[in-house]
Design a protein around this nucleic acid. Structure first.
Lengths: 144, 144
DNA sequence: ATAGATGCAAATGTTTTGCAGGAAA
DNA sequence: TTTCCTGCAAAACATTTGCATCTAT
């Protein structure tokens, strides 16, 4: 079933007149394996094992393509580094400030609240960022 | 009443064994005048008028101090630049993706939703980011 | 054959740091 | 006077770009 995602990316490339390459495939595979929330840096370090000569630029460029194709989404939990998240339905995140763990959640009520607030202020909402930062269960125990 | 805020900053500095300087005062004044959401860059450009020899580093360092003192808060609406927002109660933002306008809002229900979601996942919430991106009223008209 | 893709090195933009001289306490 | 600040230039980062060389189509 990951195959389906892969095929979508190849289709996207074809539509854009772009090419299917070994590097792009390796990067896509790692991105999918990661289960989401991967940084260009760690992806680069991993992909180097299979492609020792690959450059950072190829990783960055491919990740941008994944974002354009709609398969990935850029997120910014840790201020100065971009992570790439697997795109599914609109969802939000809980981020542990100690261990960095990220848990996704999806609540109807967030959606409703967003529409409601935007309407009141005359905004036409397009997307949102809802991130709750705190301590996950494990880190609470290690602290207390 | 801005004076009160200023006094708080001087107190903070004194407690930390730090000093009150003309540059810090100029930066604080501009930060307060801006009404929030100011970038180091624009603050630097403005403060240069009164202090032609001031350096970027002084601006950055002072803004960090303001954040540490609890008077300011770093926010990241536009991916690659940090803005400094005046810290008041926890509040959230609507950001216009076209003109960059930022509107703050404060809804009891966001607070409740945050607690509810965190509880369900076993997180101890500390802070959040809730930003709705879209078109403000004016930009909708210019588009449609 | 031809438009694209790659890898490298150099450039970018933002933020930080080292340091010598200057100022607040 | 002592400790902290400042401004400058240089360093650090993450990310992007120019370009000559390769490669998928």
């Amino acid at each position: 079933m990951e195959t389906t995602v892969k095929v979508k990316f190849w289709e996207f490339l074809r539509e854009q007149g772009l090419r299917q390459t070994a590097q792009r495939e390796a990067i896509l595979d790692l991105f999918l394996d990661s289960g989401g929330h991967i940084s260009p840096e760690s992806l680069f370090n991993t992909v180097k094992r299979a492609h020792p000569h690959i450059g950072y630029s190829t990783v960055y460029r491919t990740l941008k393509l994944l974002a354009q194709s709609g398969l990935a989404q850029e997120v910014h939990f840790h201020e100065d580094q971009t992570l790439y998240d697997r795109k599914s339905e609109q969802h939000d995140h809980l981020v542990c400030v100690r261990c960095g763990r990220v848990v996704e959640f999806q609540f109807e009520s967030v959606e409703r609240l967003q529409s409601e607030i935007a309407r009141q202020q005359g905004f036409l909402p397009q997307r949102r960022k809802f991130e709750i930062y705190g301590l996950c269960r494990e880190c609470q125990q290690r602290t207390a």
